[in-house]
Amino acid sequence: MGGVRFSVIVVAGLVFLAPASPAAALDGAALAAENCAGCHDFSGPAPATFQGVLERRAPDLFYAGSKFNRPWLVEWLQAPTLIRRAGVMFLNNIVNEDGRDRIREASVMPCPAKLGAGEAEAVADYLMTLEDPAMAVGVVDPERDFKARKALRMFTKQLPCIGCHRIRFRKKEMGGISGPDLANAGARLNPDWIYARIENPQYWDPKTWMPRIEMSHRKREMLALFLAAMK
């Protein structure tokens, strides 16, 4: 009993001595409303019409907690980089010159909100609460071995993924730009969400231009592991 009392005192002392977390003092939801809600949707559902897709200004965040890895969010919120080279909706940023489409210069910019470290922690905490309760978790074990060469062949040759997504494999960059850049997908995305997104893109975004393609669990898992290893 005395031991228990001593432990309680020690734990209480540690809590007292621990530096106050800056995130604890900040309201992540309020910061997100102030800095992010002008462009991002926090409540859903995703647009179900072509016009709605054209009008979307930034990626939906109402399932951010299922989609992202928190450490990446904290870092990115302090120094946002460009993830979609063709913008959130490529059709809004295309110019045609001499019969060839390209993305209009300066029409695609990274997110302008740059948060302080404490703010980023608080907003990341809030975003991680926005989970999709129906998404299966624990499906992909990122520690599991997979054959990288075989997965690369699937991504680039047997399936059309490389046509729209840029990746980096052994220092070589390759791929299209109408989908998000996946060169650091492993740092950014939860492997279970990668799996779920490949399984049914339209569940997350009814009018996404990513096709739903039937494949076995094993192949989908291998793709998820391949992308989760990209950091």
Partner: peptide
């Protein structure tokens, strides 16, 4: 066509979409 095809086949349908002109397609 605009939502699903233009990304590769282009706004003119001539095969010169952004995924092609950016060098993404073999």
């Amino acid at each position: 066509y605009r939502l699903y095809c233009v990304q590769c086949h282009g706004t003119l349908g001539n095969g010169e979409g952004i995924n092609q002109t950016s060098g993404g397609l073999a």
